[in-house]
Design a protein around this nucleic acid. Structure first.
Length: 209
DNA sequence: AGGACGATTAACT
DNA sequence: GTTAATCGTCCTC
């Protein structure tokens, strides 16, 4: 693929992300059915997005992000949490949408069992790791095809239940390219996470300098 | 081979 | 408001 073509294909995540608001992710992992209607997402592009896992090129972890669209990209972070993305670039161009929050619309009892700390329904999938926990997403679901008819995790209702209005703003918890308004959410949805700016503790300069 | 840090959460004061 | 938990990944030496 030429650099020119790659450039022209960039921006897929930014274009797709707002269209996923209102879409429903359904999981049958573990034999129980849980479904979440998305209220908050973030776009992550590829080589031109310093905040993206794919920024430094294809690695073992990010291979799925560089693959064909419609697949699930799950990653492990902070030594304990899983988060999930929908890959949305053409094969060979990294792009993905982080699923940040949603409303549990099916399997509420199962979701509460998986999320004992949640006090009310709006807290079940309020935050990317919480959402992944509700749907039981982890390494075993990384790379699965969300559009396959028999997939354990499926994506439905894209662009069919779009909210009438949506809000945009900076992405949560990142330090690079923090100004880009690539976070999209349903205004006033109780399941939308509180904004927390990314920050890095100042690192002391190395002694040798 | 070693170490910093992270697309976070829950439990504190 | 702060902080511990906890480990894979990636950068640096």
């Amino acid at each position: 693929m030429t650099d020119e073509l790659r450039r022209r294909l960039s921006g897929a995540a930014t274009s797709v992300a707002p269209r996923l608001l209102g879409a429903v992710v359904t999981s049958s992992v573990g034999g129980a059915r849980v479904a979440v209607r998305l209220t908050e997402v973030e776009a992550y592009e590829g080589l031109d997005d310093p905040a993206s896992h794919a920024f430094r090129g294809r690695t073992t972890r990010t291979a799925v992000m560089f693959g064909p669209p419609g697949h699930l990209y799950c990653y492990f972070t902070y030594g304990m949490h899983w988060c999930a993305n929908v890959v949305c670039g053409v094969d060979g161009v990294a792009a993905a949408v982080l699923l940040r929050a949603g409303d549990v619309v099916d399997g509420v009892d199962v979701a509460f069992a998986r999320r004992p700390a949640a006090r009310r329904p709006a807290d079940l999938a309020r935050g990317p790791a919480r959402l992944a926990t509700c749907l039981a997403l982890d390494a075993a679901q990384n790379g699965i095809d969300l559009l396959a008819v028999d997939a354990e995790v499926q994506l439905g209702g894209v662009a069919a239940r779009r909210p009438r209005t949506l809000a945009t703003g900076p992405r949560v918890g990142i330090t690079a390219a923090a100004h880009r308004p690539l976070r999209f959410w349903v205004p006033d949805a109780p399941s939308v996470s509180a904004y927390k700016a990314g920050g890095r503790k100042q690192r002391p300069p190395r002694p040798a300098d």
